[in-house]
Computed example of a mutant assay.
Amino acid sequence: MPALDPGRTALVLVDLMERIVALPLAPRPGTEVLAASARLADTFRAVGAPVVHIRVERPNVDAQPPGSELVPDLVRDGDPVVVKRTIGGFQDTGLHELLSGLGATTLVLGGIATNLGVESTARAACDLGYDLVFAEDAMSALTADEHRASVDLDFPRLGTVAPVSAITLDGPE
């Protein structure tokens, strides 16, 4: 996979919240998804590329369930956080405007769950014209079959699927 342009690429991490990372997931546990996502975020930050976090809030409730914050130490100073109230990250969140303002035309996606928040966000991003890269080992689902269906059947139609180790960015000029 060719190196990505850090001036036009953003990492988008979906729903890496304590209560979601702690779910029984497959094909890998949330702790592995979190570790891979953190490595990828470090790669992006090292060349000045943006890291955007999305978290979900349940609508029409007085309080969010325990563990609804992003995993501690995942978000760094300057990382935007977008709050969604639907499955995907674009509906009524300002995500598209944020990414456009950052100059992003390519998105690298990771998070939980592969077939829900990540895929819904990816489909909307594709409709909006973004080029997509899916960090396969920086995501997981409630079952391995759900993860594989997205990764093997859907994501190749929307963009490029790659392991975190293959996703690189050009260094600063």
Rank of each mutant, 00 (worst) to 15 (best):
D15E: 10
T9P: 13
G110V: 12
E32N: 05
A113I: 13
P80N: 06
L16Q: 07
G101R: 04
I87C: 02
R148P: 01
A49P: 09
V51K: 11
P172K: 13
L128Y: 14
T114K: 01
P2E: 14
T86Y: 09
Q91F: 14
F44S: 10
Y130E: 07
P72K: 07
V51G: 13
C126F: 15
R157D: 11
P59Q: 02
H96K: 11
L95Y: 05
R8Y: 07
L109R: 05
L11Y: 08
I54R: 02
T105K: 13
E57T: 02
A36D: 07
V21L: 07
K84M: 01
L23D: 11
E69C: 03
A141L: 03
T143Y: 00
V133K: 10
G67D: 11
E146V: 00
L169K: 09
N115F: 01
M1P: 14
P80R: 09
L99S: 09
A10H: 07
G7Y: 07
L116W: 04
P72G: 10
Q91D: 13
V14G: 01
P59N: 01
R148K: 11
R39P: 00
A122N: 04
G111C: 06
R55S: 04
G94L: 06
C126H: 14
V12Y: 05
L158E: 03
T160N: 07
D77W: 02
A26M: 03
E146A: 06
G129I: 03
R123W: 05
F134T: 06
P163W: 09
V164Y: 12
A144Y: 00
R19L: 05
V81F: 01
E32D: 15
M1T: 14
S100K: 13
L11M: 11
D79I: 11
G89V: 08
R28I: 15
L128I: 03
G7F: 04
P6C: 11
V75N: 11
P27D: 00
S150C: 06
S165H: 14
Y130M: 07
N115I: 00
G88E: 06
P2C: 01
A36L: 08
R157H: 12
A46R: 15
S120P: 02
V12E: 03
R28H: 13
T86A: 08
G117F: 02
F155S: 04
H53N: 10
A38R: 15
R55C: 07
L158Q: 06
L98D: 10
H147Q: 02
